[in-house]
Design a protein around this nucleic acid. Sequence first.
DNA 1: AGTTAGCACTCAAATAAAGTGAGTGCTAAC
DNA 2: GTTAGCACTCACTTTATTTGAGTGCTAACT
Lengths: 347, 347
Amino acid sequence: MALNDRKIQILKAIINDYIATAEPVGSRTLAKKYDLGVSSATIRNEMSDLEDMGLIIQPHTSAGRIPSELGYRLYVDRLMNTSELTPKEQEFLHSVVSGNITKIEYLMEETAKAISMLTNYTTIISEPILKRTALKQIRLMPLDESAIMLIIVTEGNFVKNHIIRVNIAPSDEDLFSVSVKINNILKGHTLEDINEHTIMALQKELKEYSGLLKPVLKAVQKTIRSAENVHLHMSGAKNILTFPEFSDISKATEIFRAFEEKNNLVSLLEDAKSNDIRILIGNEINIKEMKDCSVITTTYNMGENTKGSIGIIGPTRMNYNQVVSVLNEMVKNIENVLKTVPDGKNT
Amino acid sequence: MALNDRKIQILKAIINDYIATAEPVGSRTLAKKYDLGVSSATIRNEMSDLEDMGLIIQPHTSAGRIPSELGYRLYVDRLMNTSELTPKEQEFLHSVVSGNITKIEYLMEETAKAISMLTNYTTIISEPILKRTALKQIRLMPLDESAIMLIIVTEGNFVKNHIIRVNIAPSDEDLFSVSVKINNILKGHTLEDINEHTIMALQKELKEYSGLLKPVLKAVQKTIRSAENVHLHMSGAKNILTFPEFSDISKATEIFRAFEEKNNLVSLLEDAKSNDIRILIGNEINIKEMKDCSVITTTYNMGENTKGSIGIIGPTRMNYNQVVSVLNEMVKNIENVLKTVPDGKNT
DNA sequence: AGTTAGCACTCAAATAAAGTGAGTGCTAAC
DNA sequence: GTTAGCACTCACTTTATTTGAGTGCTAACT
């Protein structure tokens, strides 16, 4: 059976209507609401064909049709028309990143919030993760009589700090020169780079302050490890409750439970490997609790090796068109901010 | 009408039963389930009295009774027996804080998560807030050719950092000596302390690097301001959905909406002024969306002027007894950690 | 006096029955 | 190939009926 123009037109109408109303749509509704130029009976015949092709489904005998996953797939791949955001929406999204954002965490937080506000879906964002976390700067500074602070800046200007307890705090100047020495040795190294050789070199340099070696090394390790972890931000999870498909508390709870499992979210975002926008529909998501959801993901870049992902989660009946536009716009914004004003990144 | 022993016994039984089952409890149930030594008819008479006294309520004519807010008030003030946590529970709570926690944010996050897991209620925690944020250390360090980083440590060892773009980055040594100079002038100062005099002094010291003055001052201001902000952590909001009193989606959504308003949560926690445990029941909470909830709050100390709060939110029918025990235990744990190993606090 | 058995009464909730309407598939005519 | 017409289906709504937990009151008992 061929998927002629009229069939496509009808399928599009069904999907658009269902996205808007969440109600199965019948032939009469289509005939009245959309200017298809044929009678409901004809539409009925076409719908019957579409159902045979697996693109739409009848929930029960005397109901209208709803799109199947296959139908959505066809829709997002070939039928969906992309639209521009309104100037107001663009401005809103832009205002979020243009504010005085001092920490990358806040930027992520705000971005997630903005997207979920605009779309009414749930947003998750992963902070940029460094492929190979190298140390950029290591510095010791005095805190008080019995404590000094270790500051570590990694590639990408992520800052970490650790307090080190000591018996007698070395002088400011001593700490500075120790810092410079450590720095010379560890700078540019990653965790696996730190071997016996580097440690020996450190031992030699820190002869006078041998008590510092161990805590410093430990802190450095911790830092690199943590920088290699994925940090997630989520916003608008409660929006799930606003969709009639999840008005059953047990369904909502199920999804929330899936959200709680960090691995789930990470794996969702990891699907966003390429820079393109990726769409997973229903069971294409490999998380059974989310079989009635769709996820749209993409990545944003922040320097060469550093990229994070954004994912938007909604019912399969989500507004794919809008979400894609929002994602594109927001990625543009974020990349701009991260490129032009890499101000105060931190973890 | 006197509140004799038997009435108290019956009231306690009603409240305990209702907390456990969420079902209105009738005279027959009480007579069967609890060993009160009298018949259901007698209990009925007493219940009638308790209702006259406003301690219990009949949702409708042919239903059992449920506690009124007044009833709960009496219960938590005078009737409730406190119980110990099981060793297992204690161990669980302890394991949370004893892990390798490098940042105060994570400690808070984990604590909130643990409490809400154990109690099944929603937990909010405010990070310790400094009464008067003073600067402790200010340091500049090189990043690359055109950027240096400003590190600021405030009283309480909170660390902030800002990247400053420059045309030509001064040398490491120069930055060190500039740091020491700035430090000498600003150390110990709070925001309102920074006046023309200090700025003049800075201008003089930074003659050679006048381009640094403005960004440094701006960053310092930002830092202090942000440190004076309340940072909140919330966990287990979705637990709300598990209670039959909120099984109506619209009720749940209402509460979630209230949760979204940060001011609401802050004001809840601010009620926890004293070190004691405070309990707010139903309408005692001044947030109308939360009139069917109760909140139990307390504070924890971290050094003299630094204290944060923990709040647990559940239905009015919450397990006050358990929550109080958990809170007490957890505060003990947190204070221990913050006292003995004040390691790597950060904001 | 206080307690209790007995009983009529109430009313939410569960169950059953009847009615409604949007939607379908099929047929026959255009 | 298209469409009007019609019988049929079935979720949903409405209305009626039944059920049962719980109450308050009264009269008898200790």
